[in-house]
């Protein structure tokens, strides 16, 4: 009984902020200012959501979050795709086509997972400037793909280590080459780890604020930065908590959906290899 009590308490503790966010986002500003924080919205209004989406102001620009939402989508999807595909390829090469020094190579790549974001900023800004990708969606795709590669390679490499080498040997004897073995045999067996990689990368890149605010400005910014600006702008006049909360929920929604759709693979992929079968 005690354990359930603790679990219910813990769940409530974590869900309470979400409850406040959701209820506040459905309240009128009048109700926000006059009723208790925990009270249910009465009447329910979707106006804050509509405003956050299409007419809230970021500085002087009052077109809501929608433009920035699609900004985020437009660099998150390619960056997740690229880092996952190349992570899988790296893992495949590092385990099934080992070359002289491949373990050292993997070790160095691993260091990439320990490097803090902040260390990248200046050299990356300089590099983006040199190749003409500063302040662009393409630049963010590149930055996130490169940074995520260390993680996706780590995931996939550890997954492929437990995949029998004889599968690849058999396919080579059967006449398949490097790409065909990857495409026809290795990739179809990689679904769990690809899901892990996709969830991880999507969450990391979608939620990223630092790269977004450093490498982009104005209309190229991702939704996380736009949300910050929106909240910041509204604080100069009347604080519109309901619109802020609606914007925050909109911003968090895609990662939430990804977890619901692919979450069951996440645990399965993380534990894959530890159990035979």
């Amino acid at each position: 009984m005690l354990i359930y009590a603790i679990l219910i308490f813990a769940a409530a503790y974590y869900l309470l902020p979400l409850y406040v966010m959701l209820t506040t986002s459905l309240k009128t500003l009048h109700q926000v200012n006059n009723a208790s924080l925990l009270s249910l919205p009465d009447p329910i209004t979707f106006k804050p959501w509509a405003e956050a989406w299409s007419s809230a102001c970021m500085g002087v620009n009052c077109s809501g979050l929608q433009h920035y939402f699609w900004n985020s989508v437009s660099f998150v999807l390619p960056a997740v795709f690229i880092s996952t595909v190349f992570g899988a390829l790296n893992g495949y090469v590092l385990t099934k086509w080992q070359f002289r020094g491949s373990n050292l190579f993997f070790g160095l790549l691993l260091v990439g997972t320990f490097v803090p974001y902040q260390m990248f900023l200046l050299p990356m800004a300089w590099t983006l400037g040199k190749i003409g990708l500063s302040n662009s969606i393409g630049g963010l795709v590149l930055v996130h793909s490169v940074y995520g590669l260390a993680f996706t390679t780590l995931f996939c490499r550890n997954f492929y280590v437990s995949m029998p080498d004889e599968l690849v040997k058999a396919a080579r004897v059967d006449g398949a080459g490097f790409i065909r073995i990857f495409w026809r045999i290795v990739l179809p067996l990689s679904l769990p780890i690809l899901m892990v990689s996709i969830i991880w990368q999507f969450t990391q890149i979608w939620n990223d604020f630092l790269f977004g605010i450093v490498f982009t400005s104005g209309t190229h910014q991702p939704i996380t930065v736009a949300l910050y600006n929106m909240v910041d702008t509204s604080s100069t006049g009347i604080k519109r908590y309901n619109v802020d909360m609606a914007g925050a929920v909109i911003t968090a929604l895609p990662t939430f959906i990804i977890y619901i759709l692919a979450g069951r693979y996440f645990v399965r992929g993380l534990t894959a290899g530890s159990v035979k079968g």
């Binding site: 029998p164 599968l167 040997k169 058999a170 080579r172 004897v173």
Partner: peptide, 20 residues
């Protein structure tokens, strides 16, 4: 020559059947 050009076939200890 690579394995594919040697006109051989091989049966492995773990069978190495393609699970997919």
């Amino acid at each position: 020559l690579g394995p594919r050009d040697r006109n051989i076939a091989m049966v492995f200890q773990s069978y190495a059947l393609y699970p997919n």
